[in-house]
Design a protein around this nucleic acid. Structure first.
Length: 288
DNA sequence: CACTTGACCTGTCCGC
DNA sequence: TGCGGACAGGTCAAGT
């Protein structure tokens, strides 16, 4: 499911909904195949108040008054859904895509003292939720190597180009997806940004001109900003903190549009495979 | 070291 | 209607 815009949408929703809530009980999936470290340290979870909800790259952090944080990666199919003013297991927003919670893909349930709840659902179990001291988060392996946030105001085209040149001999799509180059880009927004910059995904990073890097920088930021504004993109699994979908796909220009006409030149959009991922291009605009 | 590929899981869709 | 295989918005460990 989620790339930076989707995770940011979830973060904003949770920030509105769960700050100040006090954790009363917690249940988690103990099946193998779902990695989490909640069991060992639940003493730092129960009775704690939620103080902040943050994001770095595609990782969410829910800070607690105990000095610990829930650190969450949704990977492909993870969802964090808040259910307000109900009892455990009862009810949900009327326009939600989510049925009654918890359900068979619920991995973690957090019940708050006011009767509301937060559910971590994950069909494919790639996602994870860990509880660790807030001060330890920057020491996580992922945090050590992850690249800069592309939407930060102080992120410049020069930085952008320099980060990519670390991967000069691979193709531009693989480099965009590499979290150590730039944080938060995934398959949707990689394809959308490459179309915007008229770059073929197989172009070698080292072959791009400074002008092409600058254009890609602006296209990537524009696409991600629009997606945040639209609440992200939704397939059948992505939902925000209220269980609702985002509308970016209404604005997509190539992603999952194979067989339709390129809005820029009228050629037929094609789907191929690059860096092991389904890849959508306009074969005319985005030449090698 | 840089780069590519397979593995982790479950569900769905598509062709036979 | 059933079955096999490919594939799904991510990342890491292993391989070359």
């Amino acid at each position: 499911m989620p790339e930076l815009p989707e995770v940011e949408t979830v973060r904003r929703g949770l920030h509105e909904l769960i700050i100040g809530k006090v954790v009363q009980t917690e249940q988690h999936d103990t099946e193998k195949g779902f990695p989490n470290t909640l069991a060992d340290v639940s003493a730092f979870l129960l009775g704690a108040t939620i103080t902040d909800v943050r994001r770095r790259a595609k990782v969410l952090m829910i800070d607690l008054s105990s000095g610990y944080s829930l650190v969450i990666h949704l990977k492909m199919t993870g969802q964090l859904v808040f259910v307000g003013e109900t009892r455990f297991g009862a009810g949900h927003p009327n326009d939600s895509l989510i049925g009654e919670l918890p359900d068979k893909s619920t991995r973690v349930s957090l019940l708050f003292t006011d009767g509301s709840a937060l559910y971590f659902n994950d069909q494919r179990k790639f996602g994870w939720m860990k509880l660790l001291p807030t001060t330890e988060i920057p020491n996580m392996k992922f945090m050590q190597k992850v690249g800069p946030e592309p939407l930060e105001d102080d992120f410049t085209p020069q930085q952008f180009m320099q980060r990519f040149l670390r991967r000069a001999k691979t193709n531009i799509k693989a480099a965009l997806l590499d979290q150590s180059v730039i944080a938060g880009v995934g398959n949707i927004y990689a394809d959308e940004a490459l179309w915007g910059a008229k770059l073929h995904p197989l172009r070698l990073v080292g072959s791009l001109t400074e002008e092409e890097f600058t254009l890609l920088y602006h296209e990537l930021r524009a696409v991600m900003k629009l997606a945040v504004q639209k609440g992200g993109s939704s397939n059948h699994t992505y939902v925000n903190a209220e269980g609702k979908k985002g509308s970016y796909m209404d604005f997509a220009r190539v992603f999952r549009l194979e067989g339709t006409l390129c809005q820029r030149c009228g050629a037929i959009i094609e789907k191929t495979r690059v860096a092991g991922r389904g890849t959508h291009i306009c074969p005319v605009c985005q030449h090698l």
